[in-house]
Amino acid sequence: MSTRKLNQEVFGLWVNELIARQRVVGVQAKEERFIFGSLSKAEDLRLDYDVTLLPPKKYLLPQREHLMEFTAQGEYESRIEHEPFILFGVHPYDVIAISQLDAIFSAGQYDVHYMTRRRNATIVACDVQTVSAHVFASSMNTATVQDGFDLLLTKIGDDYLADARTEKGEELLAIVSGGVEPAKEDFAKREEVWRKNRESLRKHDLKCRPEELPALLAKSYDDPIWEEKARHCFSCGSCNLVCPTCYCFDVHDDMNWDLQTGTRTRACDACLLNEFAAVAGGHNFR
């Protein structure tokens, strides 16, 4: 696999070339904040973002998606999205979150809707350039990442190091004209970016190791802290929606106007909503 060094100009040309070839979803400014959205030109790309309003999850597990179409006679036909796209500028912690979603949707029973979209996605990861106010990625060992993406971009000085890690990443890199072979110092500069990010993406310091968290949570099931925190909670479910790893969903049918055909849709659901685990007879296990 190869790595190239791209200066600003080459980088911009490359991104525009990618946009001309396939759909590119990248980070852009939205008023004072940042979002992932369809990119129409390289100038709109903001890889200096701190954090996005929503994680890139919505391009792999949309808030609503049609699973299938059906007829009133009970025939069901799956609808699967096949459009290839590039997810551009994903921070390391979001790359790791996507790997977790991949594990959930591919392990055991294979979710063809999610996995087809995932297979069609090329993930261009990007090392963090601006430290956000409340970041705790480093406490979770997610400040930097070494796999789960196709290509990694790291800003070193005014240039980018573009490091292809898969065939898909290699294909993107093959389109660049004007990139140069990086020198040893360039890799050293990247090491320095990684080292700094591991140090600075830690606005909140976790006192234990992340590996200890499952046991800690299991042990703290009856801790009064949950009641205390729940008093401030609006029970809106927004935290599930913005969480890069929450994947729970609900499924419902909509009949078309003809009353003969309809669509089955899945939509993000939230385990913190009251109804989530309720069953008939008014019983709720939560």
Binding site: L67, M68, Y76, E77, S78, I80, I98, S99, Q100, D102, A103, S106, A107, Q109, Y110, D111, V112, H113, M115, T116, R118, R119, D147, G148, F149, T166, R209, E211, E212, P214, A215, V251, R264
Partner: peptide
């Protein structure tokens, strides 16, 4: 410490040929 299950490698998962739709 819990023994954390290793994440399935995304690239390995993406190579599998899709079987039928489990929701159909």
């Amino acid at each position: 410490t819990f023994e954390q299950a290793a994440l399935t490698d995304a690239s390995a998962a993406t190579e599998r040929t899709p079987p039928e739709d489990i929701y159909a």
